[in-house]
Nucleic acid binder design. Structure first.
Length: 1066
RNA sequence: GCCCGGGUGGCGGAAUUGGUAGACGCAGCAGACUCAAAAUCUGCCGUUCGCAAGGAUGUGAAGGUUCGAGUCCUUUCCCGGGCACCA
């Protein structure tokens, strides 16, 4: 009777469905255990052998816990919204819902092959309205909440409004210090119009709207991710990419920064994972310091009475003021500032982002001299790319609405040219604010570096440096943030302006360089070259003199970031240890009102919208530029059908092309991929609930995910967002725990083992690998190295006939130069991907060897958390093991060989050794050594010719989590045979009890000790475990081998470590 | 560039707490069974010197700590993941 895995696996999979074997109840006396796999995106390429790695690990663990008496929740579902489906729709015209559905079906079919114990009644799909209704609902919770810094948790926005009505915002200052309105009283709050009130509330909401830059590719008509932009052009097609500012939703995750850090102490993530999250959050403390800027002198234009013109402009008119009140604070949806210097001119108003200037002409513009001046000026500005709008005082006085409307329309119609930092009104008497973690080094500041995209640059650049600065900015605009950070080449330009050190009045040159990013801190740093490596290299490169404030700690060769120095060249700080100086400086700064103590986070608020179709619509309606939430009863807001997946007229999402949608003033952005995946683990608990995202009693029962398995690629994305959502839901009282995942196990990637063939360039002749001296040429002729499908390479040997037929007989006429009648391929380890022809489909392997073999082999490959290349060859060994196991029960010739004989001590020792090791290994996720242990056990039992039920039955229970089908078959056979009976009626192994380890069967009284001389093992001695040091010494010294090495000398020392080893030191 | 991993035979890996490096499996070699093949079974299998006994050497590289280092420390090289619109 042979091992017919196909029949066995099919039979039990069906039987398990029939008996609802994997159904999980929310009510149980057993302790609960929640095992979760990271939410898969159902890609069109289907599963390759890398995908199920984590699923098999979690499946084994779930089954193990069930055997241990737990009520185990182990669900699966699909993160079904996402870009690939939309991209596929654009390319093939198939609706994303349709292709996603197909992909899911295929995904499911492939998963079912492998025999997982998922409770499929709990499946969820993020694109299902029954699911995204609750994603929208949670979004509304975020929108209708603010972070109360006093109670340190999220609270209803109503609480904030009540507080405003009672006492203004004294208790809850606006989080955004750049917002035009800073403080208001209760009376003022009540006097604000609705729009102003809503604008203010938006500054507090946990989900809020703002403006952010995106990579805009006009040719592709889409926004691109950073990694889709290479060298300033799109990866697909190489089209130019520009920065575009669009309205975006954000989540105020920064408010949770401290709690996200604190929570790490209460969860079992690997240290490296915690470190990554900690670094991402990037908490630092230091000071924000404001430096005055010494302005570059204005130089007069050619001809004209520029002085008079300047003077006129220095005193804003009544009309200018009135217009300003309508333009300030983004009321037009655009950031506008007034009295802005461009080169040697000052314009009344400007949108730097759109390169539009606005002039309000008073009477004095009628005199001839002024006219000439204006013409020169207009021409000059035009040259720089500015478009000028002019209005008369009368227009502003009599019909200001029309003026504002005209300005808004003009601004809407123009493309965005770059980032504008929302840095308040105008910057007259300009200052530069930097954030530093080392205020103690204030006297060592030799230059400043500011992000090139800051508006301030335009304002402070000198006439001489204008060209260089503008050229550099143009260069930086073409660079992605990633490229800027990764650039090794030092680059930058002096702005021509100087900041003034407040303590010694030293003038510090201000530079711009791409390595400073606008989004981090204030977008400006004070550079201390003697103490910071990058600053040092920058100073060296541009020959900026370096001030040494740390004496002998700085050798002039490289920077030294020490905090142990005593300060020199540091004015009033001379002689002060650095560690004390920071405090002194901060106090002094605060005293002078030019700086504040500041805790800074590297983490930014999370961008929460996409200009895409295939995502959750926001339950938001815009009325007169103000966002209003839909009511809960209007959920779900269904994703409508669209004719085209191209973006809206201003780069908005495709929803902007639907007239009815736009007419209802509904939000045209959709939510990003991580919306649905930030809370799915809660929905699995109560997947069909129509009245709540998850019933509170149910979430209280299942509580945290006890074990979460997934890749490190989610370290700082999904794993932070879902932690934040959980905390918000907890704060608002919807769930009872504030950390979603108790324990995280990371799974490594399975890489592809690519195979290559070598074709002589320009011919159809392929040369076998080992005949080549190099991969580039063969007998003086150049070679083409081509990927070949690994599925027709056996190890390294190419199946030549299969290769000829590959891809429609593409190589039908190929000729081969063979070695020993074989074609040997080259190899490389690469990412597993269709384009590299190195994917291996689990379906094929399951078909050939069975699910149990496949499961065990995936585990056998190596530790689950380590990346390793796939090698199909090795699967044979695992398959042989299962066949060998089968032969302990049934023989091909003799039939049943298992019996009810009493087990011997040796057999019991094998069993209990195995129980202990499997229990330990499974518990610590060392599944590869677990598989080895089974192999050793079966080898040993085969050697002992042990066919005893007493030994084999518990062994099957141990094996059941790893190879459930064969274990179930044999386990039930042990129950009904030899008397015969109904296998299906027998008791299932799924609910067996995990065998109990008993130490008495494995205790040893002796140990084979390695005996080392000076640390090198020379011989072995079998000694009683109870032996003493003295006895050991006597026996060791009497040993022949030891005596030989001693050469008559006395040993200095004999080290004896019980149960470990003996070392004789000579 | 920054942050986090990883590097052990021909290959995947083992060595759980600083204590016999290479368990288990693949590939390879030799043999048994067989008309033959498959399947199965037995033996060998890091490198090197040696007939052997036995020795030397060996965990990416270079140093160090220790009676003893794959494991701890310092420096360094290579590979993989992440860096905020892939999921």
């Amino acid at each position: 009777m042979e091992y017919k895995f196909r029949d066995i696996e099919k039979k039990w999979q069906q039987q398990w469905i029939n008996t609802n074997a994997y159904k999980v109840s929310n009510v149980s006396d057993k302790p609960k255990f929640y095992v979760l796999d990271m939410f898969p995106y159902p890609s069109g390429a289907g599963l390759h052998v890398g995908h199920p790695l984590g699923y098999i690990a979690s499946d084994i663990y779930s089954r193990f816990k069930r055997l241990k008496g737990f009520n185990v929740l182990h669900p699966m579902g699909y993160d079904a919204f996402g870009l690939p489906a939309e991209q596929y729709a654009i390319e093939h015209g198939v609706h994303p819902a349709v292709s996603t559905d197909q992909n899911i079906n295929n995904f499911r079919r492939q998963l079912d092959n492998i025999g997982f114990c998922y409770d499929w009644d709990r499946e969820v799909r993020t694109c299902d309205p029954g699911y995204y209704k609750w994603t929208q609902w949670i979004f509304l919770q975020l929108f209708n909440s603010f972070y109360n810094r006093k109670t340190n948790k999220a609270e209803k926005i109503d609480v904030l409004i009540a507080s405003f009505e009672a006492e203004g915002n004294a208790t809850h200052p606006i989080p955004n210090s750049q917002f035009p309105i800073t403080a208001f009283t209760a009376t003022e709050w009540k006097a604000f119009d609705e729009k102003t009130q809503q604008d203010i509330l938006m500054q507090y909401r946990l989900a809020y709207c703002g403006y952010g830059e995106v990579n805009w590719c006009e040719a592709l008509g889409t926004v691109l991710a950073n990694d889709e932009v290479v060298n300033g052009v799109s990866e697909r097609g190489g089209h130019p990419v520009v920065k575009k500012k669009l309205r975006q939703w954000y989540l105020r995750i920064t408010e949770y920064a401290d709690r996200l850090l604190e929570g790490l102490e209460r969860i079992e993530f690997s240290e490296s994972m915690k470190e990554m999250q900690t670094n991402w959050i990037g908490k630092s403390s230091g000071a924000e310091i404001t430096f005055e800027i010494k302005r570059p002198p204005l130089t007069p234009p050619e001809g004209g009475d520029w002085q008079a013109a300047e003077q006129n402009r220095d005193n804003p008119t009544e009309e200018e003021n009135r217009l300003w009140q309508r333009l300030r604070a983004n009321q037009t949806g655009h950031h506008i500032r007034r009295q802005h210097i461009i080169d040697q001119y000052i314009v009344d108003f400007i949108s730097i982002d759109k390169k539009v200037t606005i002039e309000v002409d008073g009477g004095y513009h009628n005199d001839a001299e002024q006219k000439q001046y204006d013409e020169v000026r207009t021409a000059f500005l035009k040259e720089l790319g500015y478009e000028e709008l002019r209005f008369t005082n009368e227009e502003v006085r009599n019909n200001i609405d029309a003026v504002v409307e005209a300005i808004t329309q003009k601004l809407n119609s123009k493309p965005s040219v770059g980032q504008v930092s929302p840095s308040g009104e105008d910057l007259e008497g300009a200052t530069l604010t930097v954030y530093t973690t080392r205020p103690d080094t204030i006297f060592g500041v030799d230059f400043m570096v500011i992000a090139p995209e800051l508006d301030l640059v335009d304002q402070i650049k000198s006439a001489e440096q204008t060209t260089a600065v503008d050229e550099y900015i143009a260069y930086v605009k073409s660079r992605s943030e990633r490229e800027r950070q990764a650039e090794k080449k030092i680059s930058g330009v002096f702005t021509g302006a100087y900041a003034v050190n407040p303590f010694d009045g030293r003038e510090i040159p201000i530079w711009i360089s791409e390595y400073v990013l606008a989004g981090y801190g204030t977008g400006a740093i004070m550079a201390v070259p003697c103490g910071d490596d990058r600053d040092f290299k920058f100073a060296q490169h541009f020959n900026i003199p370096i001030t040494n404030i740390i004496g002998k700690h700085f050798n002039g060769e490289e920077a030294n970031a020490t905090k142990d120095a005593v300060l020199e060249n540091s004015g009033f700080l001379n002689g002060t240890p650095m560690r004390e100086a920071a405090e002194i400086v901060i106090n002094k700064l605060e005293e002078l009102g030019i700086g504040t103590r500041k805790v800074n986070f590297r983490m930014r608020d999370a961008a929460f919208s996409r200009q895409r179709y295939w995502g959750e619509p926001f339950p938001i309606q815009w009325k007169g530029g103000t966002a209003y939430p839909l009511s809960e009863t209007e959920l779900p807001l269904l994703l409508p059908e669209v004719d085209s997946y191209s973006p809206g007229p201003e780069g908005e999402g495709p929803l902007a092309n639907i007239p009815e949608w736009v007419a209802k003033e509904l939000e045209t952005n959709t939510m990003p991929g991580y919306a649905g995946s930030s809370w799915y683990f809660l929905r699995y608990m109560d997947p069909k609930n129509e009245h709540a995202f998850c019933d509170r009693t149910v979430s209280d029962y299942w509580n945290q995910v006890d074990l979460y398995i997934g890749g490190t690629e989610h370290a700082v994305g999904h794993l932070l967002y879902s932690r934040m959502w959980t905390k918000t839901l907890y704060d608002l009282g919807h769930i009872g725990h504030d950390e979603p995942f108790k324990k995280l196990v990371n799974q490594g990637m399975i890489q592809g083992a690519s195979r290559f063939v070598y074709r002589i360039n320009g011919t159809n002749t392929f040369v076998s690998k080992d005949l080549l001296k190099s991969e580039e040429e063969y007998e003086g002729k150049k070679l083409d190295k081509l990927h070949v499908d690994v599925n027709f390479v056996d190890g390294y040997e190419l199946d030549v006939e299969a290769f000829k037929k590959w891809r429609n007989n593409e190589h039908a006429n190929a000729e081969f130069i063979l070695e020993n009648d074989k074609y040997i391929c080259g190899s490389e380890v690469e990412k597993m991907s269709k384009s590299k022809f190195n994917t291996v489909n689990p379906d094929d392997l399951v078909n050939k060897y069975g699910a149990d073999t496949f499961r065990m082999y995936e585990m056998f490959l190596g530790p689950v958390e380590i990346s390793k290349p796939w090698d199909t060859k090795g699967i044979e060994g695992v398959h042989r093991f299962l066949k060998k196991l089968w032969r302990l029960f049934y023989d091909e010739v003799k039939g049943q060989v298992w019996n009810n004989d009493k087990a011997t001590d040796a057999e019991l020792k094998v069993l209990h050794k195995t129980i202990k090791k499997i229990e330990d290994d499974t518990e610590r996720f060392s599944f590869n050594t677990g598989v080895s242990t089974f192999m050793i056990a079966v080898n040993e039992l085969s050697d002992l010719k042990c066919h005893k039920k007493e030994i084999l039955e518990p062994l099957l229970v141990l094996l059941a989590p790893y190879a459930p089908h064969i274990a179930e078959e044999l386990y039930r056979r042990l129950q009904v045979s030899p008397s015969g009976g109904d296998l299906e009626g027998a008791f299932s192994i799924l609910d067996a009890n995990f065998p109990k380890f008993e130490a008495k069967y494995v205790t040893e009284s002796t140990k084979d000790y390695p005996v080392a001389i000076n640390g090198k093992t020379r011989t072995e001695l079998t000694l009683d475990l109870s032996i003493t040091q003295q006895e050991v010494e006597a026996i060791v010294l009497a040993n022949e081998t030891v005596q030989k090495w001693l050469e008559g000398k006395q040993p200095k020392k004999i080290i004896y470590v019980k149960n470990k080893m003996i070392n004789v030191v000579i």
